[in-house]
Amino acid sequence: MATVSFTIFRGNSPDTGGFETYSTETDEGMVVLDAVHKIQAEQANDLSVRWNCKAGKCGSCSAEINGMPRLMCMTRLSDLPLDKPVLLQPMKAFPLIKDLVTNVSWNFDVKKKIKKFKPRPPDNADGTWRIAQEDVDRVQEFRKCIECFLCQDVCHVLREHRMHDEFIGPRFLVYAAALEMHPLDTEDRLPDLKNSEGIGLCNITKCCTGVCPEEIHITDNAIIPLKERVVDRFYDPLHWFLRLFKKS
Protein backbone atom coordinates (compact mmCIF):
# COMPACT_ATOMS: atom_id res chain seq x y z
CA MET A 1 0.00 0.00 0.00
CA ALA A 2 0.97 3.64 -0.20
CA THR A 3 3.61 5.25 2.00
CA VAL A 4 2.36 8.41 3.69
CA SER A 5 4.30 11.02 5.65
CA PHE A 6 3.14 12.61 8.87
CA THR A 7 4.63 15.69 10.43
CA ILE A 8 3.89 15.45 14.14
CA PHE A 9 4.53 17.94 16.91
CA ARG A 10 6.90 16.45 19.51
CA GLY A 11 7.79 17.90 22.87
CA ASN A 12 6.36 19.02 26.19
CA SER A 13 6.49 22.77 25.61
CA PRO A 14 5.49 24.91 22.63
CA ASP A 15 8.78 26.76 22.97
CA THR A 16 11.21 23.87 23.06
CA GLY A 17 9.20 21.33 21.05
CA GLY A 18 9.31 20.94 17.30
CA PHE A 19 8.08 18.87 14.37
CA GLU A 20 9.28 15.42 13.34
CA THR A 21 8.31 13.75 10.11
CA TYR A 22 7.61 10.01 9.95
CA SER A 23 6.77 7.89 6.92
CA THR A 24 4.65 4.80 7.29
CA GLU A 25 2.88 2.23 5.16
CA THR A 26 -0.88 2.70 5.04
CA ASP A 27 -3.71 0.33 4.37
CA GLU A 28 -7.17 0.68 2.88
CA GLY A 29 -9.68 2.47 5.09
CA MET A 30 -7.09 3.67 7.60
CA VAL A 31 -7.86 6.63 9.84
CA VAL A 32 -5.29 9.10 11.16
CA LEU A 33 -5.25 7.43 14.58
CA ASP A 34 -4.27 4.11 12.97
CA ALA A 35 -1.28 5.78 11.37
CA VAL A 36 -0.29 7.44 14.65
CA HIS A 37 -0.49 4.07 16.42
CA LYS A 38 1.63 2.47 13.73
CA ILE A 39 4.26 5.19 14.07
CA GLN A 40 4.14 4.84 17.86
CA ALA A 41 4.56 1.06 17.73
CA GLU A 42 7.25 0.98 15.07
CA GLN A 43 9.22 4.21 15.19
CA ALA A 44 8.47 6.30 18.28
CA ASN A 45 7.40 4.17 21.26
CA ASP A 46 7.22 7.20 23.54
CA LEU A 47 4.91 9.23 21.26
CA SER A 48 2.09 10.63 23.41
CA VAL A 49 -1.44 10.25 22.10
CA ARG A 50 -4.70 10.13 24.01
CA TRP A 51 -7.34 7.71 22.78
CA ASN A 52 -9.86 5.21 24.02
CA CYS A 53 -12.55 3.76 21.81
CA LYS A 54 -11.34 4.41 18.25
CA ALA A 55 -14.97 4.51 17.20
CA GLY A 56 -15.94 8.17 17.55
CA LYS A 57 -17.80 7.57 20.80
CA CYS A 58 -15.53 8.71 23.60
CA GLY A 59 -14.07 11.97 22.25
CA SER A 60 -10.51 11.39 23.51
CA CYS A 61 -8.35 11.65 20.38
CA SER A 62 -8.98 15.31 19.53
CA ALA A 63 -6.13 17.01 17.70
CA GLU A 64 -5.50 19.40 14.84
CA ILE A 65 -5.13 17.69 11.49
CA ASN A 66 -3.75 19.98 8.79
CA GLY A 67 -4.79 22.81 11.09
CA MET A 68 -8.40 21.63 11.58
CA PRO A 69 -9.67 20.45 14.99
CA ARG A 70 -10.84 16.86 14.40
CA LEU A 71 -11.09 13.42 15.96
CA MET A 72 -8.16 11.35 14.73
CA CYS A 73 -10.24 8.17 14.87
CA MET A 74 -12.89 9.50 12.51
CA THR A 75 -10.62 11.14 9.95
CA ARG A 76 -9.86 8.82 7.08
CA LEU A 77 -6.59 9.17 5.26
CA SER A 78 -8.44 8.91 1.97
CA ASP A 79 -10.17 12.21 2.79
CA LEU A 80 -6.85 14.05 3.17
CA PRO A 81 -4.37 15.25 0.54
CA LEU A 82 -1.52 12.74 0.80
CA ASP A 83 0.91 14.23 -1.67
CA LYS A 84 2.43 16.24 1.15
CA PRO A 85 2.91 15.27 4.83
CA VAL A 86 -0.19 15.25 7.02
CA LEU A 87 0.35 17.83 9.76
CA LEU A 88 -0.63 16.72 13.28
CA GLN A 89 -0.65 19.12 16.22
CA PRO A 90 -2.17 19.18 19.70
CA MET A 91 -5.21 21.36 20.42
CA LYS A 92 -4.20 24.97 20.90
CA ALA A 93 -6.81 26.17 23.37
CA PHE A 94 -5.41 24.05 26.21
CA PRO A 95 -2.00 23.76 27.88
CA LEU A 96 0.29 21.22 26.29
CA ILE A 97 1.24 18.06 28.15
CA LYS A 98 3.31 16.36 25.50
CA ASP A 99 3.21 15.68 21.74
CA LEU A 100 -0.47 15.38 20.77
CA VAL A 101 -1.82 15.45 24.32
CA THR A 102 -3.13 18.54 26.09
CA ASN A 103 -4.34 19.23 29.62
CA VAL A 104 -8.12 19.56 29.29
CA SER A 105 -8.85 19.58 33.05
CA TRP A 106 -10.13 23.18 32.82
CA ASN A 107 -13.24 21.78 31.12
CA PHE A 108 -13.97 19.48 34.03
CA ASP A 109 -13.60 22.36 36.48
CA VAL A 110 -15.99 24.53 34.46
CA LYS A 111 -18.64 21.83 34.36
CA LYS A 112 -18.59 21.46 38.11
CA LYS A 113 -19.51 25.14 38.53
CA ILE A 114 -22.68 24.90 36.44
CA LYS A 115 -25.74 24.38 38.59
CA LYS A 116 -26.71 20.74 38.57
CA PHE A 117 -29.93 19.10 37.37
CA LYS A 118 -32.86 19.75 39.69
CA PRO A 119 -36.00 17.81 38.72
CA ARG A 120 -39.57 18.74 39.52
CA PRO A 121 -41.30 16.39 41.97
CA PRO A 122 -42.24 13.05 40.40
CA ASP A 123 -45.56 12.92 38.52
CA ASN A 124 -46.52 9.54 39.87
CA ALA A 125 -46.69 7.95 43.29
CA ASP A 126 -44.02 5.40 42.26
CA GLY A 127 -41.50 8.22 41.80
CA THR A 128 -41.62 8.28 37.99
CA TRP A 129 -42.38 10.98 35.43
CA ARG A 130 -44.34 11.05 32.20
CA ILE A 131 -42.37 12.70 29.41
CA ALA A 132 -43.31 13.11 25.74
CA GLN A 133 -40.89 11.84 23.10
CA GLU A 134 -40.77 15.30 21.46
CA ASP A 135 -39.45 16.79 24.69
CA VAL A 136 -36.79 14.09 24.86
CA ASP A 137 -35.80 14.60 21.22
CA ARG A 138 -35.15 18.32 21.62
CA VAL A 139 -32.64 17.79 24.41
CA GLN A 140 -31.12 14.61 23.04
CA GLU A 141 -29.34 16.57 20.36
CA PHE A 142 -27.31 18.21 23.13
CA ARG A 143 -26.87 15.02 25.12
CA LYS A 144 -25.18 13.41 22.12
CA CYS A 145 -22.09 15.45 23.00
CA ILE A 146 -19.04 13.21 23.49
CA GLU A 147 -16.98 15.94 25.24
CA CYS A 148 -14.15 15.94 22.70
CA PHE A 149 -13.73 19.70 23.36
CA LEU A 150 -13.06 20.42 19.68
CA CYS A 151 -15.65 23.21 19.87
CA GLN A 152 -13.72 24.73 22.77
CA ASP A 153 -10.50 24.41 20.79
CA VAL A 154 -11.82 26.24 17.73
CA CYS A 155 -13.66 28.99 19.64
CA HIS A 156 -11.68 32.19 19.20
CA VAL A 157 -12.77 33.52 22.59
CA LEU A 158 -10.76 30.68 24.16
CA ARG A 159 -8.24 29.93 21.41
CA GLU A 160 -7.14 33.47 20.54
CA HIS A 161 -8.32 35.62 23.43
CA ARG A 162 -7.64 33.03 26.18
CA MET A 163 -10.70 34.18 28.15
CA HIS A 164 -10.96 30.89 30.03
CA ASP A 165 -11.81 32.72 33.24
CA GLU A 166 -14.74 34.65 31.81
CA PHE A 167 -16.27 32.31 29.24
CA ILE A 168 -17.37 28.68 29.60
CA GLY A 169 -17.19 27.96 25.86
CA PRO A 170 -19.54 26.26 23.43
CA ARG A 171 -19.36 22.84 25.09
CA PHE A 172 -20.76 24.16 28.33
CA LEU A 173 -23.30 26.39 26.68
CA VAL A 174 -24.60 23.18 25.09
CA TYR A 175 -24.49 21.55 28.53
CA ALA A 176 -26.39 24.47 30.06
CA ALA A 177 -28.91 24.34 27.20
CA ALA A 178 -29.45 20.62 27.80
CA LEU A 179 -30.23 21.36 31.45
CA GLU A 180 -32.33 24.47 30.80
CA MET A 181 -34.42 22.66 28.18
CA HIS A 182 -34.61 19.38 30.12
CA PRO A 183 -38.33 18.61 30.47
CA LEU A 184 -38.00 17.95 34.23
CA ASP A 185 -35.51 20.60 35.28
CA THR A 186 -36.54 23.49 37.52
CA GLU A 187 -33.23 25.26 38.15
CA ASP A 188 -32.57 28.80 36.90
CA ARG A 189 -29.19 29.20 35.23
CA LEU A 190 -29.82 32.44 33.34
CA PRO A 191 -28.14 34.82 35.83
CA ASP A 192 -24.97 32.68 35.80
CA LEU A 193 -25.01 32.45 32.01
CA LYS A 194 -25.17 36.22 31.77
CA ASN A 195 -22.62 36.96 34.48
CA SER A 196 -19.94 34.45 35.38
CA GLU A 197 -20.36 32.18 32.34
CA GLY A 198 -20.04 34.92 29.74
CA ILE A 199 -22.65 33.96 27.17
CA GLY A 200 -22.46 37.51 25.77
CA LEU A 201 -18.89 36.87 24.64
CA CYS A 202 -20.05 34.47 21.96
CA ASN A 203 -20.55 36.40 18.74
CA ILE A 204 -22.06 33.48 16.85
CA THR A 205 -19.42 32.88 14.23
CA LYS A 206 -20.52 29.22 14.27
CA CYS A 207 -16.97 27.85 14.15
CA CYS A 208 -17.96 25.44 16.92
CA THR A 209 -20.84 24.02 14.92
CA GLY A 210 -18.47 23.47 12.01
CA VAL A 211 -16.12 21.16 13.93
CA CYS A 212 -18.63 19.17 16.00
CA PRO A 213 -18.16 15.46 15.17
CA GLU A 214 -21.67 14.75 16.47
CA GLU A 215 -23.10 17.42 14.17
CA ILE A 216 -24.85 19.20 17.01
CA HIS A 217 -26.23 22.57 15.86
CA ILE A 218 -24.38 24.22 18.71
CA THR A 219 -24.97 27.84 17.73
CA ASP A 220 -28.46 27.67 16.28
CA ASN A 221 -30.08 25.21 18.67
CA ALA A 222 -28.21 25.77 21.94
CA ILE A 223 -26.45 29.13 22.12
CA ILE A 224 -28.90 31.39 20.31
CA PRO A 225 -31.96 30.17 22.27
CA LEU A 226 -30.02 30.69 25.51
CA LYS A 227 -28.97 34.16 24.41
CA GLU A 228 -32.63 34.94 23.66
CA ARG A 229 -33.66 33.82 27.12
CA VAL A 230 -30.97 35.96 28.71
CA VAL A 231 -32.00 38.98 26.60
CA ASP A 232 -35.69 38.46 27.42
CA ARG A 233 -34.96 38.27 31.11
CA PHE A 234 -32.37 41.01 31.55
CA TYR A 235 -32.63 43.40 28.66
CA ASP A 236 -36.31 43.42 27.67
CA PRO A 237 -37.57 46.95 28.59
CA LEU A 238 -40.89 45.69 29.91
CA HIS A 239 -39.23 43.06 32.16
CA TRP A 240 -36.74 45.69 33.28
CA PHE A 241 -39.54 48.05 34.20
CA LEU A 242 -41.49 45.36 36.07
CA ARG A 243 -38.38 44.37 38.00
CA LEU A 244 -38.11 47.88 39.35
CA PHE A 245 -41.44 47.38 41.11
CA LYS A 246 -40.48 43.93 42.37
CA LYS A 247 -37.43 45.37 44.03
CA SER A 248 -39.27 48.11 45.86
Binding site: P119, T128, R130, A132, V136, P183
Partner: peptide, 18 residues
Amino acid sequence: VRELEAWGALFDRTKDGK
Protein backbone atom coordinates in the same frame (compact mmCIF):
# COMPACT_ATOMS: atom_id res chain seq x y z
CA VAL B 1 -32.95 2.61 35.97
CA ARG B 2 -35.66 4.86 37.41
CA GLU B 3 -33.06 6.41 39.68
CA LEU B 4 -31.02 7.43 36.63
CA GLU B 5 -34.02 9.35 35.39
CA ALA B 6 -34.16 11.23 38.66
CA TRP B 7 -30.52 12.16 38.03
CA GLY B 8 -31.25 13.56 34.58
CA ALA B 9 -31.08 10.66 32.13
CA LEU B 10 -33.56 10.92 29.28
CA PHE B 11 -34.59 7.59 27.80
CA ASP B 12 -36.72 7.16 24.71
CA ARG B 13 -40.44 7.11 25.55
CA THR B 14 -43.57 5.04 24.97
CA LYS B 15 -46.64 6.80 23.53
CA ASP B 16 -47.96 7.39 27.05
CA GLY B 17 -44.68 8.97 28.19
CA LYS B 18 -43.06 6.07 30.07
